[in-house]
Design a protein around this nucleic acid. Structure first.
Length: 262
DNA sequence: ATGACTTGCGCGGCAAGA
């Protein structure tokens, strides 16, 4: 039986600030694929040589100062940059890889969905429009009937059990009814939330704010998700949140989440 | 408690994040 395929996603909050954490993660966890968000640099500023020396192929979709996504893979792969549906969108938030796997492929997307705060502004309407574009694109991808993993920072708290203090987040763009409704619409295309396929537990988080002692108080939210097509879900073996990463010196405010597929 | 953090940019203090 072949080794499982390990696929992880992590919002690094600046790859250049986090290069040592990134390299130790690659060495210790050995993901086959790692999706990164908020690399916060242009393609030419990505620490490509360090990552390649660790045994990974790299594709970036960078941007100066903000946003930026990347996919790292032990196996070489084909890449597509950008989310279809709006030629005028200049924000780098989506990159997609087709990775050889056995006789076929696994398709993996690295997603940095807009934050959307504050609500009632163009930032929130951009978030909702971006989610509509993601739903349309995912509908097309699912028709391919491939193993598909839509991984990333969705900036969506799916349910009250995914937030330490639901009342405090009631009016936030990450938790508003219209946000959650679109997330449910995405899921209803036939996707499986990896974490919820393995546990119903409350209080499993992937983000803790830097402010107000959110980490020591465990005042977190679950917003980083690995969504699976049926053929990927059939192969799901395990899910892990690498919570220890939040306790390191100079951590990202997000931690990685990962799956093993048979 | 008028608080509390971390980035990029670029060298002074914003803007953005969640």
């Amino acid at each position: 039986m072949p080794l499982p395929l390990r696929i992880a996603t992590w919002n690094v909050n600046s790859v250049r600030q986090r290069i040592e954490h990134l390299l130790s993660y690659l060495k210790e966890v050995e993901p086959d694929v790692l999706c990164l968000q908020e690399i916060k640099c242009l393609d030419e500023a990505f620490p490509r040589l360090e990552v390649e020396s660790a045994g990974y192929n790299v594709a970036t979709h960078g941007q100066k100062t903000f946003n930026g996504v990347a996919i790292l893979s032990k196996r070489p792969f084909e890449v597509t940059r950008g989310l279809p549906g709006d030629q005028g969108d200049t924000q780098s938030r989506y990159i997609e890889a087709v990775i050889p796997d056995g006789d076929g492929v696994v398709r993996v997307a690295s997603i940095y969905l807009p934050n959307g705060n504050p609500p009632l502004t163009e930032k929130y309407s951009y978030k909702l429009a971006w989610m509509d574009r993601l739903i349309s694109h995912a509908r097309g991808l699912l028709k391919l009937e491939e193993p598909l993993v839509l991984a990333g920072d969705y900036n969506v708290i799916p349910e009250p059990r995914d937030v330490h203090d639901p009342a405090a987040w009631a009016g936030d763009a990450l938790f508003l009814p219209a946000t959650r409704e679109r997330f449910r619409e995405l899921m209803a295309l036939g996707l499986t939330d990896s974490l919820r396929a393995s546990t119903d537990a409350a209080g499993l988080y992937t983000f803790w704010d830097y402010q107000a002692g959110a980490w020591p108080r465990n005042n977190g939210i679950r917003i980083d998700h690995l969504l699976l097509s049926p053929r990927a879900a059939d192969r799901l073996q395990s899910v892990s949140i690498d919570k220890d990463m939040r306790a390191l010196e100079k951590p990202s405010d997000h931690v990685p989440i990962r799956i093993d597929l048979a």
